[in-house]
C-alpha cells in the first residue's frame, strides 16, 4: 500500500482515538449515539467506496442492502424472538441475501450495458422502498418496526456494578463498544481486501477496463464479487443501525436521503481510499448535528428578509452539503484524501 500523507495518518489516528474513547471523552447519551453513527457510517461509506472508488460503479441500491440488514434483525426481534441468536441469524441471513441480490443485479445490468447499471440500481432501490412500505404485516409499513434488544444491550443492564472513570457500565456502553468493534473489524477487513491481489485487480479494472480484460481478467466476475461483498458489509452496517435506534423504518434506512449521505461521505472524503470515506463519514455525521443549529441561528437572524431565511432553514442543510458536493466533484475530485496527497 502507498505511504499515506502524515496529516492523513494523524487524522485517522485522531478519529480512531476519539471513537475508541468516545463514551469517556464525550459522555452523554446524545454524543455517544453520534459516535455510534459515525462508526456505522464509516462502515457503510467504506463499503460503498469498494464499489465507487475501486471499480468505478455508481450504484444507488446501496441503502437497500443497508435496509436488508436493519430489517433482517428488526423482523425477528419485533416478532418477539429477542436474543443474540436472533441477532446472529438476522445478520448472517441478511448479509447473505444482500450478497445474492447484489450479485444478481450486477450480473443482469453489468452484462447488458455498463451505463444502465446506475439507472437500474436506482429503479430497484425505489422498488425496495415501495415494497417496504407496502408489506405492512412484515415490515410495519410506513411506521416501521420498534423492538426490544437482548438484555445486555438494554439501558437497565449493568455490566459492572461500579462506574468506570465515572461512566456507568450499562447496556448502552456495551452497545457502543459492540458497534465500535464490529465497525473496526469490518473496516480492517475491507482494507485487507483492497490491498489483496483481488483489490489490485479491481483497481486495474477501474483504471482501464479494456486492458484488464485483455490481460485475461474476467472483469464481470470481479465486479460482481465486489458488489456482493460491498452489499454484505452494508447489511452489517444496517444491523448496527437497527440495534442503535431500536427502530427500523423506510425513511431511516431506504430513502434517497440516506443514499445522498453516503455519496456525500465518499465524495467529500475522497473515493478510492477507504480512509477518505471514513473521514467523510465523520464530517457528514457531525455536520448533521452541528450545521443544523448553526443554520437555525442564521435563519433567525434573517427573519423578515424575503426568501433568504428559507435558504438557511435548518431543514435545508442538504442544499449546502449538495452545493459542497458539486464543488468538490469539480475542483477536488479526489476529496480530502486527494488534496493531502504528496505531490
Amino acid at each position: 500500500m502507498k505511504r499515506q500523507h502524515p496529516v492523513l495518518t494523524a487524522l485517522l489516528v485522531l478519529l480512531f482515538v476519539a471513537l475508541a474513547a468516545a463514551p469517556f471523552i464525550f459522555p452523554g447519551t446524545k454524543s455517544v449515539a453520534t459516535a455510534s453513527r459515525v462508526c456505522i457510517f464509516i462502515v457503510l461509506a467504506a463499503s460503498y467506496d469498494i464499489l465507487l472508488g475501486y471499480t468505478g460503479i455508481v450504484s444507488f441500491a446501496h441503502t437497500m442492502f443497508f435496509a436488508f440488514g436493519a430489517y433482517g434483525v428488526a423482523i425477528p426481534l419485533a416478532a418477539g424472538w429477542v436474543g443474540w441468536d436472533a441477532v446472529l441469524v438476522g445478520t448472517l441471513g441478511s448479509a447473505a441475501l444482500a450478497a445474492a441480490v447484489s450479485a444478481a443485479i450486477a450480473l443482469l445490468s453489468l452484462r447488458v450495458q455498463r451505463l444502465f447499471f446506475s439507472m437500474i440500481t436506482m429503479a430497484v432501490a425505489s422498488f425496495a422502498q415501495i415494497l417496504a412500505t407496502q408489506l405492512r404485516e412484515i415490515t410495519g409499513g410506513e411506521d416501521g418496526l420498534t423492538f426490544s434488544l437482548p438484555a445486555a444491550l438494554q439501558p437497565g443492564f449493568r455490566l459492572l456494578a461500579e462506574p468506570i472513570f465515572g461512566v456507568r457500565a450499562d447496556g448502552r456502553l456495551v452497545g457502543y463498544y459492540l458497534t465500535f468493534f464490529v465497525a473496526l473489524a469490518m473496516f480492517w477487513l475491507m482494507r485487507r481486501l483492497v490491498a489483496s491481489p483481488f483489490g489490485r485487480v479491481l483497481q486495474a479494472i477501474r483504471e482501464n477496463e479494456f486492458r484488464a480484460e485483455a490481460l485475461g481478467y474476467r472483469t464481470i466476475v470481479y465486479r460482481t464479487t465486489a458488489s456482493a461483498i460491498a452489499a454484505a458489509v452494508a447489511a452489517v452496517a444496517g444491523v448496527l443501525m437497527a440495534l442503535l435506534l431500536r427502530y427500523v423504518g423506510p425513511s431511516s434506512t431506504l430513502s434517497f436521503d440516506v443514499m445522498t449521505d453516503i455519496l456525500l461521505m465518499v465524495v467529500i472524503g475522497g473515493m478510492g481510499s477507504l480512509t477518505g470515506p471514513a473521514l467523510g463519514a465523520a464530517v457528514v455525521v457531525l455536520a448533521h448535528y452541528y450545521l443544523q443549529p448553526l443554520m437555525q441561528a442564521g435563519h433567525d437572524a434573517l427573519a423578515g428578509v424575503p426568501v433568504l431565511p428559507n435558504l438557511v432553514h435548518p431543514d435545508r442543510w442538504l442544499l449546502w452539503l449538495g452545493t459542497l458536493f458539486v464543488l468538490i466533484v469539480y475542483f477536488f475530485p479526489a476529496g480530502i484524501v486527494g488534496s493531502l496527497k504528496r505531490r
Binding site: 455508481v58 455519496l263 442538504l318 442544499l319 452545493t323 458536493f325 458539486v326 469539480y330
Partner: peptide, 17 residues
C-alpha cells in the same frame, strides 16, 4: 452521474425553499 446527482439534490432543495 456524480455532478448531476449533486445538481439534482441542490435543485430539489431550492424548489422546496
Amino acid at each position: 452521474i456524480l455532478i448531476t446527482v449533486g445538481g439534482l439534490i441542490v435543485a430539489g432543495e431550492l424548489i422546496v425553499a
